Simulated scan of single mutants.
Amino acid sequence: MELIPGNSLITETPEAGRRLAMDMALHSIYAIQPDGEILKTGRTVYATDPDELIASSQVVALEFATIAAANNYWR
């Protein structure tokens, strides 16, 4: 499994960086829990729990912060 799609944190735009952050978060989840059925079962819990949704957003935000720094904040 490729944990960093394209093996690079460099993106042309912040929008592409945000997409990469979401992809990286998703790849991490699948690396941690490779059983698709268990993941599917868990969705009913976190999809309706505001705390779980916020935690998921925080993971993406951390990935995006790393990508933004790697891209010198697109300056």
Rank of each mutant, 00 (worst) to 15 (best):
D35C: 06
T66R: 15
A69Q: 14
S56I: 13
R43Y: 08
E63W: 03
G36D: 14
I10W: 05
R43C: 05
M22V: 03
W74V: 02
Y73N: 12
G36Y: 09
I4N: 06
Y30S: 00
I32Q: 09
A70P: 00
A68D: 00
A31Q: 10
E15Q: 13
T44F: 10
T41M: 04
L53V: 11
R18D: 04
A70M: 08
A68V: 05
R18P: 15
R75S: 14
T66Y: 15
T13C: 11
V60A: 01
M24F: 07
G6I: 02
T44D: 09
L3F: 07
L39D: 06
L39T: 10
P34E: 06
A70R: 04
A61W: 00
V60Y: 01
Q58N: 14
L39N: 12
P14R: 12
L20Q: 04
L3E: 06
S28R: 10
H27G: 00
T66C: 13
D51L: 15
R43M: 09
T44W: 09
R75W: 15
N7H: 12
V60M: 00
L62E: 10
S56W: 12
P5E: 11
R18W: 10
E15N: 06
Y73V: 03
T48V: 15
Q58Y: 08
I32R: 08
I29T: 06
G36P: 00
L39Y: 06
E2P: 13
T66E: 13
S56H: 14
A16L: 12
L9R: 04
G36Q: 11
T41F: 03
Y46P: 00
E15D: 15
L3P: 08
D35N: 12
Y73A: 02
R43E: 10
I54M: 08
Y73P: 01
T13A: 10
A68E: 00
A31S: 12
T13H: 09
N71C: 05
I29H: 05
A70N: 08
Y73S: 04
A70Q: 13
A55D: 06
Q58W: 10
P5C: 03
E2H: 08
A31Y: 06
E52T: 03
E37P: 06
R75H: 15
E52A: 15
Y46E: 01
S57H: 10
L26P: 04
V60Q: 00
Y30C: 00
T41R: 12
A65M: 14
T13K: 10
F64N: 07
D23I: 01
G17F: 02
D51K: 14
Q58H: 12
M1E: 03
I32L: 15
M1C: 03
P50E: 14
N72A: 11
M22K: 02
E12T: 08
S8M: 04
A70V: 08
E37C: 05
A47P: 02
F64P: 15
E37T: 11
S8E: 05
E2G: 04
D23A: 12
E52M: 13
Q58P: 05
R19F: 11
Y30P: 01
I29N: 05
K40W: 03
V59F: 04
